[in-house]
């Protein structure tokens, strides 16, 4: 009885202690979050001095949740059907997987390249980098223009990527190292946006194309191919036997 009570009490205590551990990462003012969101779109060309990265997780977490909601909207409007699994699970898995997975990867690369960055800062940097993605996806899931997406992809996605690149540049020393870390984060970040757009948008594009009716690609057709009846004796025998059977 005493043991059980003690365990209960220590568990409850641990829970509340853990909340206090979380506090510095989540306790922010709305105006701080707004400023950081703005700053995530403004690359600063100051690479001689390490730029500050706020180690805060409220903004990134909310951006990931927002992106889940936007992805769900995109999936619904494009009529995506996922055979094994659910839309909800896919959306949550994609967003959190990208955020946590790519952050860990970048942290690993940063470790190899000797960058001055902690895991917390990586999470925060990449999380705020998702703000551009959210804007682009939200607009282009609702307004279906191909060219609009590419412009947004380059401008807004590019700006948020540039911001991350600038921060990482300022915290890395050496040309090769800078090239490796910035190249990998740029490629991952930009292709993720492309993937998200086209993976859950294609169906609507297809419908639009068929509605236009002009630049519609001819559907795939089965075309009879010439069979070379040379050395393939089995095929020859079969081909000869078939008419005999049908008679």
């Amino acid at each position: 009885m005493w043991q059980a009570g003690k365990r209960q009490a220590s568990k409850a205590f641990n829970l509340y202690a853990n909340i206090d551990i979380l506090r510095p990462y989540f306790d922010v003012e709305p105006i701080q979050v707004r400023n950081r969101l703005m700053e995530s779109m403004i690359p600063i060309r100051m690479i001689n001095f390490p730029q500050k990265i706020a180690g805060e997780l409220y903004g990134p977490l909310m951006l990931v949740f927002t992106m889940v909601a936007i992805l769900l909207h995109g999936m619904k409007s494009s009529g995506t059907v996922i055979v094994e699994g659910t839309l909800m699970g896919t959306a949550i898995g994609t967003c959190f997987g990208y955020w946590l997975g790519v952050s860990s990867f970048i942290y690993f690369v940063a470790y190899l390249c000797n960058s001055q960055i902690t895991m917390l800062q990586t999470l925060s940097l990449l999380g705020y980098g998702l703000f551009g993605h959210c804007i682009v996806l939200f607009i282009t899931y609702n307004i279906h223009f191909h060219s609009l997406f590419y412009v947004f992809w380059l401008v807004i996605g590019g700006l948020s990527t540039l911001r991350m690149v600038a921060v990482l540049l300022s915290r890395t020393v050496g040309h090769t190292q800078r090239l490796i870390i910035c190249g990998s984060i740029t490629a991952l970040h930009m292709f993720f946006l492309l993937y998200l757009h086209f993976a859950y948008h294609k169906v609507v594009e297809g419908i639009l194309d068929t509605l236009d009716g002009q630049n519609m690609a001819p559907p795939f057709q089965r075309v009879a191919r010439d069979l070379s009846l040379g050395p393939n004796s089995v095929l020859n025998v079969t081909l000869q036997a078939l008419p005999a059977q049908s008679r």
């Binding site: 003012e29 709305p30 909310m62 909601a69 769900l72 619904k76 909800m88």
Partner: peptide, 24 residues
């Protein structure tokens, strides 16, 4: 002043619920 910071996740949560209603 921190009210919006808590209102926003609640809002998102109900978007998820509605999204589950219209198709999981």
């Amino acid at each position: 002043t921190k009210k919006p910071l808590l209102i926003y996740p609640i809002f998102l949560l109900y978007i998820y619920f509605l999204s589950l209603y219209t198709g999981v």
